[in-house]
Design a protein around this nucleic acid. Sequence first.
DNA 1: CTGCCATTTTACCGGC
DNA 2: GCCGGTAAAATGGCAG
Lengths: 80, 80, 80, 80
Amino acid sequence: MDVGGIAGDRLRSVIERIERLEEEKKNLQNDIKDIYSEAKGAGFDIKVIRQIVRMRKLEEHKRKEAEEILELYKRAIGMD
Amino acid sequence: MDVGGIAGDRLRSVIERIERLEEEKKNLQNDIKDIYSEAKGAGFDIKVIRQIVRMRKLEEHKRKEAEEILELYKRAIGMD
Amino acid sequence: MDVGGIAGDRLRSVIERIERLEEEKKNLQNDIKDIYSEAKGAGFDIKVIRQIVRMRKLEEHKRKEAEEILELYKRAIGMD
Amino acid sequence: MDVGGIAGDRLRSVIERIERLEEEKKNLQNDIKDIYSEAKGAGFDIKVIRQIVRMRKLEEHKRKEAEEILELYKRAIGMD
DNA sequence: CTGCCATTTTACCGGC
DNA sequence: GCCGGTAAAATGGCAG
């Protein structure tokens, strides 16, 4: 079906696929929340854990950037 | 091992599980982004699609709220 | 006065205006809290009232979203 | 009117008063947002301003606590 | 590059 | 007096 130049079926498919993925995402979020709760129950300070996770993400990011620059340089001098 | 009263192994486990789930989440986010791009390539207006997705979520949410209120009322008048 | 390229007077004005508004906001928050307390005192279930308020807000929100989508569609088919 | 032991009119009044105040609150929020935008337009770093506002709030809080303790002590030794 | 939108983090409030 | 959940603030990311 095609109303006003809009491919309705395809649009519906797009929306449903998005919703499907968003639901999976939500489930993961809940899983994460559960882990934090569990950690809290075990006496850990959630706020600190969050901070650690953030920091590690940042360092991961920095590491990747450094590697990319290295690659760039290597290519520049024909080392690849 | 236990340093300064902190159960290091357990903490590490917590952090790694969180990071694992967050990565999965990120992948899903990318998948969603891809669908939007694909839709855009097919001539759809992304803004409209986002709006539709948001609205459908809202409807779902509203439905759930309504159910909750009903439950609250039922409990209030001893119907549970 | 201008210290280190910063227009101190203007900055102070900005901050004070924000603080003024935030205080008014806080007062309103307290007023709202008072109404809830009063309602509770009159035998109402605060939880239910909150839920109703939330749901009415949701409805309002949904209505607005629907209007926006309509606008988007109209623009999409050149009706604006 | 009174349905199921619920004083409908009073409930409605409660809800409407709450909604009225929440709308005022929302307006204030928007006003604050506008000031931040204006400040940004004038070249200020919003993030820094937020930090300053937060810090001042904290200090205000600390000042009040100190005063309260002082009052407490004064009362304890019969200075009030 | 600027504004907007999603996500995330922080703060609060009622309940136990 | 904490805890759990809910709302607000803030930060980050993305499209235009």
